[in-house]
């Protein structure tokens, strides 16, 4: 039985080659093998959305993908969006609109929003709520998150 697979994954435009056991979840691989701890793990059964990453540009639960399946694919995590000194416009908007409190769910929401705003640059409040309905947040009641997404959309349209 082959217990270890060599994989090559591009994460945030950097190519990583690693050997993984097939059962290792992509969330654990990103966090513990690559040290990209911005992706958070809240439930490991695909409901909370904290571990959302972009898998070839589409939002996906990294707790419901095996790392071995990411071989040859392109992953974007929150670390790939912006830096402290150069925030992505969505991150800027979350800062300005107080779109986070404890910040645990935030990375998964940011990654969900990236493709959403690409596909829908001027969303209604209802569409925003629908778009983030797969991301649970226990702190904010979502209102400032919705405001932040609206603000981000404005920023990005400019």
């Amino acid at each position: 039985m082959q217990n270890s697979f060599n994989i090559a994954v591009t994460v945030n435009d950097t190519r990583y080659e690693r050997a993984v056991e097939p059962r290792i979840l992509l969330s654990d691989f990103l966090r513990h093998d690559l040290g990209l701890t911005g992706t958070h793990v809240g439930c490991e059964h695909g409901v909370c959305g904290a571990c959302t990453i972009l898998f070839d540009g589409q939002p996906a639960r990294s707790c419901l993908v095996f790392a071995v399946q990411a071989h040859g694919h392109k992953i974007t995590t929150v670390e790939g969006l912006g830096t402290i000194d150069n925030l992505h416009p969505i991150q800027e908007a979350f800062h300005e609109a107080h779109g986070l409190q404890c910040g645990f769910c935030t990375p998964g929401i940011l990654t969900t929003i990236v493709p959403f705003l690409e596909q829908n640059p001027d969303p209604s409040e209802e569409e925003i709520r629908e778009a983030i309905s797969g991301n649970l947040c226990r702190c904010t009641g979502y209102q400032h998150i919705v405001d932040a997404v609206k603000l981000a959309a404005e920023k990005m349209r400019k």
Binding site: R31, T37, H40, I84, Q91, F94, H95, L100, G103
Partner: peptide
């Protein structure tokens, strides 16, 4: 006032317990 703690949280640079290696 906007929050001092946000930039780190927004960029995945804030330390949570499970991030300790």
């Amino acid at each position: 006032v906007k929050r001092n703690e946000d930039p780190r949280l927004l960029t995945g640079q804030a330390l949570f317990v499970d991030d300790v290696e």
